[in-house]
Design a protein around this nucleic acid. Structure first.
Lengths: 225, 225
DNA sequence: TTCTGTTCTTGAACATGTTCAGTTTGAGCC
DNA sequence: GGCTCAAACTGAACATGTTCAAGAACAGAA
């Protein structure tokens, strides 16, 4: 565990770390994650191979650091996006807009993150390592719901944000592999799916639907542990 | 492309191939995919490292071969399972039973297969390399539906089998990572989810539901390409 | 300034997937 | 038997993620 992310380091040290991180990102974005070598990164940063490992525990750690930086930088943008409307559909669309716009330049790198489903793998969106970001992200969806004028049944409160987060993951996954020009298919997917989802949420909150809802929630709880 | 799977080879050659394949499987099942070395495999099979590559294009190819063998061996079991009842729920449960029973001994190895979502990765269940198996598997679900007494709307015919296949993939993924004793949670998941799914299928075929169905199908077609 | 301990940095070494130029084997033919 | 050629096999070499023992740089104490 030699990752120095947590260490209060000198300005000089921080500078070196940045130099290595930037070199890594530049190479990843240019040539992809797989084809970029740790030796390449070190060379581009002007340090020895070992130096990269002094600051980043592994090659994967670069992607994790990128993910963390992204979450940090997107937080204010998301807050802003949620200020625009109280319509649930628009609020959800705004979140997705921010994410896709932010990641537009780094779709290739994101592939390295979204390639794993195994919760044991650090780079999985379901892993322990990404839990903090995930929780923060889920909180954002909770805000999207609670700040909207759409009323949601009380028993859905805890489940809905996580379900929406999973929906978002699906959209992003689709987007990453979307080969259509300008990712217009993803745009269409969002358009269609958001309508269905918002309608479902509204329907599910009718008193009439209470037994159905309970069943669905039981299933959800089983899966969500 | 040196994989010899397709070559009509001599008995001696086939024997060597088997020896290597068995060694690989034994080591994978015993120590896991990641920790097993190509050198280990070759050593256990009593050949040089290069020989393994003469018969299998890569380490991943072993898993692919295992997957193919599984599909082949399960085909008659699945056919048998589908002969037992005309109740859709029971038919689907029977398919899942066969799969989980068959894979019970090799859950660890299956992880290597189910770890990837990237359709570009050969080991992904969505890849080109696994297309044949996938199609065969989807056909099995088509049979499960068509041979049941449950009537399905005509416009769902092409989509439903693939949707059920995806459902199955979800169940298997859950099962692989299920840490509960004897995987009883997966059992509960199947129990609950099958009920919901069959009900959904029945509901969706009511004439009343036709507009909802059309919407859902539009979304499906967009995603399924 | 000199000493001391910590932080940084280096580059060689290691493990492992993969490649490949070569050697051995064996079947078919004379 | 001796020859030929393709199939089967070998093991050294390579690329790359990672480790680590050793040294350099530096901050603070004396």
């Amino acid at each position: 565990m030699r990752n120095r992310t947590d260490v209060k380091s000198t300005a000089k040290s921080e500078e070196t770390r940045q130099k290595i991180f930037s070199a890594a990102l530049a190479l990843f974005l240019d040539g992809g994650f797989e084809t970029t070598t740790m030796r390449d990164i070190a060379a581009k940063a002007g340090v020895a191979t070992g130096a990269a490992y002094y600051y980043f525990a592994s090659k994967d750690a670069f992607v994790l650091a990128f993910y963390e930086k992204s979450a940090l930088e997107m937080a204010p943008l998301l807050e802003e996006a949620l200020a625009s409307s109280s319509d649930l559909r628009k609020r959800l669309a705004a979140i997705l807009d921010v994410k896709l716009a932010y990641f537009a330049a780094s779709r290739r790198l994101l592939k390295a993150l979204a390639a794993h489903v195994d919760p044991e793998h650090p780079l999985s969106p379901f892993s322990e390592a990404t839990k903090a970001i995930r929780d923060q992200d889920i909180a954002c969806f909770a805000l999207a719901v609670s700040g909207s004028k759409t009323r949601v049944a009380a028993d859905m409160d805890s489940a809905l944000p996580r379900l929406l987060w999973m929906y978002q993951m699906g959209v992003i996954l689709y987007w990453i592999h979307d080969r259509s020009a300008d990712q217009e298919r993803t745009r269409a997917l969002i358009d269609k799916s958001l309508g269905i989802i918002v309608r479902l949420i509204q329907l599910s909150s009718l008193p009439l639907m209470s037994p159905v809802r309970r069943q669905a929630l039981e299933l959800y709880r089983l899966v969500a542990e």
